[in-house]
């Protein structure tokens, strides 16, 4: 096997490994993700108008939030956990969405498998070309 073929196979292997690793990374984030509804809390005003729930900000999303203090003790009727948006802003937390992880992992996986596959094919061709290269003739003409 030529040096080029070895190099191409090596990089292809690393790319395929990276592609495979994205499955595990995605899975680990998915395990930590919870359905979250960000809310604005204004108990005085909500109480005045008989509202039992804080004001939702956007729709519930699957998010990864490591800080347990961000979660309120109550949940919403749809099963989402409520998170105080003011707390997130105060702590400078921009919650990661599972959707973002899935999109990024999917893109990296596609690129890694694509590049890995291409390099493996190139490595195979590089190896074949070397193998087929004719030996110089020893018979004098």
């Amino acid at each position: 096997m030529t040096r080029w073929a070895k190099l191409l196979f090596g990089v292809a292997g690393l790319a395929l490994l990276l592609g495979a690793a994205t499955f595990f990374v995605e899975k680990s984030y998915a395990d930590k993700a919870v359905l979250v509804q960000r809310v604005q809390i204004d108990s005085a005003a909500s109480g005045l108008f008989g509202e039992s729930e804080p004001t939702p900000i956007g729709s519930p999303q699957l998010m990864i939030i490591d800080d347990p203090k961000a979660f309120l003790t109550s949940g919403d009727p749809n099963g989402a956990r409520l998170v105080d948006d003011a707390y997130l802003q105060e702590k400078g937390i921009y919650p990661l969405q599972l959707k973002t992880v899935e999109f990024t992992a999917g893109t990296v996986r596609l690129a890694a498998f694509g590049i890995g596959g291409l390099l493996a094919v190139l490595g195979w061709f590089a190896g074949r070309r070397r193998a087929r290269k004719p030996e110089p003739s020893s018979n004098p003409v």
Binding site: T55, G58, Q61
Partner: peptide
């Protein structure tokens, strides 16, 4: 106390 929101759905993220 007022709150106006606009939510946009993208492949990458649903942001508000």
């Amino acid at each position: 106390r007022n709150l106006a929101t606009v939510e946009s759905v993208t492949d990458f993220e649903t942001f508000t």
